[in-house]
Write a protein that binds this DNA or RNA. Sequence first.
DNA 1: GACAGGTAAGACAACCTGTCTTACTTTGGT
DNA 2: ACCAAAGTAAGACAGGTTGTCTTACCTGTC
Lengths: 129, 129
Amino acid sequence: MPPHSQDATGAELSILQVLWDDGPTSVRTLTDVLYPGGSKVHYATVKKLLERLESKGYVQRDRSESSHLFQAAIAREDLIGERLRLMAEKLCDGSLAPLLMHLVKSQRLTKSERQSLRSLIDDIDGRPK
Amino acid sequence: MPPHSQDATGAELSILQVLWDDGPTSVRTLTDVLYPGGSKVHYATVKKLLERLESKGYVQRDRSESSHLFQAAIAREDLIGERLRLMAEKLCDGSLAPLLMHLVKSQRLTKSERQSLRSLIDDIDGRPK
DNA sequence: GACAGGTAAGACAACCTGTCTTACTTTGGT
DNA sequence: ACCAAAGTAAGACAGGTTGTCTTACCTGTC
């Protein structure tokens, strides 16, 4: 779990989304997905964003082929965790509990969501660390 | 609940923290809290940040006295909600459920936290919309 | 009137972000 | 072997953001 001193920006995030969905992908493919009918200008943009993502530690590059393949170096779930933690630091003195409480209270949970949430807690209860 | 097209930045947030804790406050007091022993330069900085917070809708100003009083226009709780929603849009296609699940799973909840969480869900269950 | 303290408005450098350019290298077809 | 297509590498760039700082003006009180 790298430090990730720098956050992924908006455009970088849209690249991560594709990598999460499609797995290892070439610059060409990414460009076609994100900028349909895109020219070589967009190709360069995607490439630059991938470079930055790599230097920030969000993406890994496979250089074994002449045309490199890129894949996410962090799972969506883990990025969510990072951002929640960051948000807790900035807004709640580092504690995640207020975020949790807010979500449970504010969100209109469906019956099945409540059910799976309850069983999730039961799981934790049943497996005492 | 204003739109808040622009997010509150780091320095702005530290001002909001004081406003949340202390209620309506003058520029002078805020400066003393945030920049102890601060000169008139820091005073101006705080003032500028308050201006921006006001124009973004995060702060309300009481101009009735010659020295204005500022107070938060949004509760800490509501800002948390806004940011969670924003994060859900960027990372989870708008759904808050993944954030909730992540928090429940990842956080080491104490027994009493689990208990209060369970009863919170029971509350919602018992009061069917 | 001078002055202490406030308001108003904007300049400024440093940085971030997305885009785009330019130059070099590799690959594959003929 | 040559050449065009496609890749890589590196960096310039404009526009915006952010925190800081400056400068000018207003308003009370002694």
